[in-house]
Design a protein around this nucleic acid. Structure first.
Lengths: 173, 173
DNA sequence: ACCTGAACACCGTTCAAGT
DNA sequence: ACCTGAACACCGTTCAAGT
């Protein structure tokens, strides 16, 4: 009666991320995840409470990747937000999942720590407000961009740089 | 062989909105919608192509409501964005749906017309950039707020007003 | 012209039975 | 201790048959 694990939580989460990115949330199915890790669907419940918990785990793994991404970027606000946008382009579904109800808020807070640190250099006592303002702007910008909501009027890259510059300037003062 | 319609597209969309707001997207089920309008699920397909098309129609109806909401507010940028946030609080699921893939982008563009008009008074030639910057900020702020991502540090209403003030000031000059 | 029941393929999840 | 098949309740969708 040994019965060693034929899969692992890490493998399951990784399979979930693949399915999510390639077909959206509807494609992340317990049955497809099971097939990908070489097991039957009921076995997944030995490793994960239910589909919702798996989605949370996928969200947390994505946020951890974002934190790593921040760690590998320069520490200026501009660099951090450019890295944020590049990350969202590489993992659009994961990005959306990060801000869904049920997202792991602790991880999100931890990942945004470098932004807060950079804001402290710029805005001193109002660092928290400044960090929130820029984070809200970037998050909304990317959301709208991913939804295809920027249709009239030119270069989206340029619009992002425009926003970055104006916000930084407005907060320096 | 008359067989008059026992329901209508308007009734179906309205039932869909109710279900969406009270239980999230997963609760918007063809079967539940059918039950609410007094018909069996297969009959819905005489009025709507499929569930995805129904979600788009719900999204469009929500955006129309937002446009009405803008029309009933003062024309200043501050008033418009406060109305935007209040609207999102009243219809949080509809708000999220507005920025999902498959959203009716034409309607969204039309609804945001008053914001663009107000931005012209403030920023002149750079009105489009200014409107986008403020819209992206407000959209991200609300998204994060609805996801529960503002946990440390005080009054969220105050944070919104702080952002409003700083952005307006930064764009005026 | 619209509605219906029956049917199909697919879900998430539970559970007793296997090893 | 993990895996499995069978089962259950629920999906979306199609379609022939009713009125």
């Amino acid at each position: 009666m040994p019965a060693p694990s034929r899969t692992s939580i890490a493998e399951i989460v990784s399979a979930g991320r693949d399915l999510l990115e390639s077909g959206g949330p509807a494609a992340l199915t317990m049955q497809k995840v099971a097939q990908k890790v070489g097991v039957r669907a009921p076995s997944l419940y030995k490793h994960v409470r239910d589909r919702e918990a798996l989605l949370s785990a996928v969200s947390a793994a994505t946020i951890d990747d974002l934190a790593e991404c921040f760690a590998g970027s320069e520490e200026s606000l501009d660099s951090l937000f450019r890295a944020y946008r590049a990350f969202a382009h590489r993992w659009p579904e994961g990005f959306r999942l990060m801000f869904s109800p049920g997202a792991p808020l602790d991880s999100l807070e931890r990942a945004s720590e470098p932004v807060l640190a950079a804001a402290r250099d710029l805005a001193g006592a109002e660092a928290l407000e400044a960090a929130r303002l820029m984070t809200a702007w970037a998050t909304g910008f990317i959301h709208m961009e991913l939804a295809g909501a920027f249709r009239l009027g030119g270069d989206v890259d340029h619009a992002f740089e425009y926003g970055l510059e104006h916000l930084r300037a407005g907060l320096e003062r």
